[in-house]
Amino acid sequence: MSDLTGLRVLITGAGRGLGRACAEAVVDSGGDVIAVARSESDLTDLANSRPGRIEPWIMDATDPAFHARVAALHRLDGLINNAGFNRPQPFTEVDIETLDAMLALNVRAAFLTAQAAAKVMVAQGSGVIVNMTSQMGHVGSPGRTVYCLTKHALEGLTKAAAVELAPHGIRMVSLAPTFIETPMTAPMLADAAFGKFVLDRIPLGRVGTAAEVAAACIFLLSPAASLITGSSLLADGGWTAQ
C-alpha cells in the first residue's frame, strides 16, 4: 500500500534535510522525483545517489519561472511542498526583512507551488499534495511568531484547498513534524538550554529523524492514505498532545 511505483513526485527544498530524505524515500518506494533546490552541488549529489531516478531543477521556489514550469508539466502525481525556513526573533524585535522573507517563501511560494501543481493534477484527475508544515502550525512558541504564522497559514491552505480539490480526485494534506535532526536544527539543539526546552516538551523524550518524516510522507502520498485529505498528520512525538 505504500508502493509509489510509476508515480512522479516533485519536491521543493530537496537539496538537504527533510527534502532530501523525502526524495530518497520516494525513489526507494518506486517513484521518480523532480528535485528542486537552489544549490547545484546538493542536487548533483542527490541525483548521483539514485542514478536515473531524480531530475534536478536548480531553481528558486519563489521564482515565477519555477511556478510556470510546474504548471507546464504534462503529468505530476505528487508534490511535497517542503521549501521553507525559520529565523527566530522575539516578537517585538522582528524586522521587516525577516517578516517579508519568511512570508515570501513559507506562504506565498508554497501557495503558488501548490496552485501550479493543482492545475496539472486537475487536468489529469488525480494527485496528492503534501504541505510540509510543523507542530508550530498548531501551537505557539517563544521567538517563533513569524514561523508559527506561516505554518498556521499552510494548515489553513490545506483545509480549504482539500475541500475544493476533492471533486477532482486530488488530496491535499499537511505533515507537521516536531524538531528534527537536520543540519539546520543542529546548532539550535546543541545549545543546552534550548535542547532541554525541546526535550521537556516531547513526551517520547527525543527529537525526530529525517527518515521518520520521510516515512510519514510516503504514507500520505500512497494509496494507504486514500481517505485522508484536508487534515494534518502530527509527527511530533506528542508535543501538541499536552
Rank of each mutant, 00 (worst) to 15 (best):
L233I: 00
C148H: 06
S49Y: 12
P223V: 03
I228F: 09
L18C: 05
P90R: 04
S141M: 09
V107F: 07
W239P: 00
P90H: 09
L76P: 00
E164Y: 15
S41N: 11
G15P: 06
A215P: 02
A116G: 03
F219H: 02
L157I: 03
A186M: 08
V128N: 05
A190C: 04
L227Y: 15
A215C: 04
Q242W: 15
A211C: 07
F66S: 07
M121N: 01
I170E: 02
A117K: 04
A118W: 05
K119G: 15
V94A: 09
T158W: 09
F91C: 06
S174V: 01
R20T: 02
A211D: 14
A110C: 07
G156V: 08
D200W: 07
A61R: 11
M121I: 01
T98N: 15
F194Y: 12
Y147N: 00
S39Y: 11
A14K: 01
G52V: 05
I170M: 10
D63W: 14
E212Q: 13
P88D: 07
S134K: 09
T209L: 13
A23P: 00
T12I: 08
H67P: 04
E55F: 05
R20L: 03
G17I: 05
P142L: 07
V163T: 13
E24L: 14
A216N: 08
T92Q: 13
F66W: 15
E181L: 12
A21R: 01
R201H: 14
T62V: 13
H168I: 01
V33A: 06
A71R: 03
E97G: 12
A190P: 01
E40C: 04
C22G: 03
Q135I: 14
P56M: 06
I54E: 13
V26Q: 04
A25Q: 04
R108D: 12
S141C: 09
A35I: 03
E212W: 14
T240M: 03
T5M: 02
V130L: 14
L165P: 00
G208E: 12
G78L: 01
V213R: 11
I129G: 00
I96F: 13
L157T: 00
E24Q: 12
P142N: 12
A161K: 00
L43E: 03
D32M: 10
T113G: 15
A110E: 06
G52M: 09
D95W: 05
R8F: 09
M1R: 07
P183D: 15
V207Q: 12
A72W: 10
C22V: 06
N106H: 09
S232T: 15
D42G: 04
A192K: 10
N48K: 09
A190Q: 10
G143A: 10
D28E: 15
A118V: 00
D28I: 02
P187I: 02
N81S: 07
A214D: 12
V107A: 13
T12F: 08
A153C: 10
L234C: 05
N81F: 07
E40S: 13
A37K: 00
G195R: 02
V207F: 12
S29T: 04
T98D: 15
V213F: 14
N131S: 14
A123Q: 06
L112Q: 11
E97A: 15
V139Q: 10
A160Y: 13
S49M: 08
G30H: 11
L7S: 05
P51R: 03
A214Q: 11
S29Y: 12
I218K: 01
S226L: 06
L105H: 07
H168P: 03
R38Q: 11
V163W: 13
V70P: 10
N82L: 13
P90E: 14
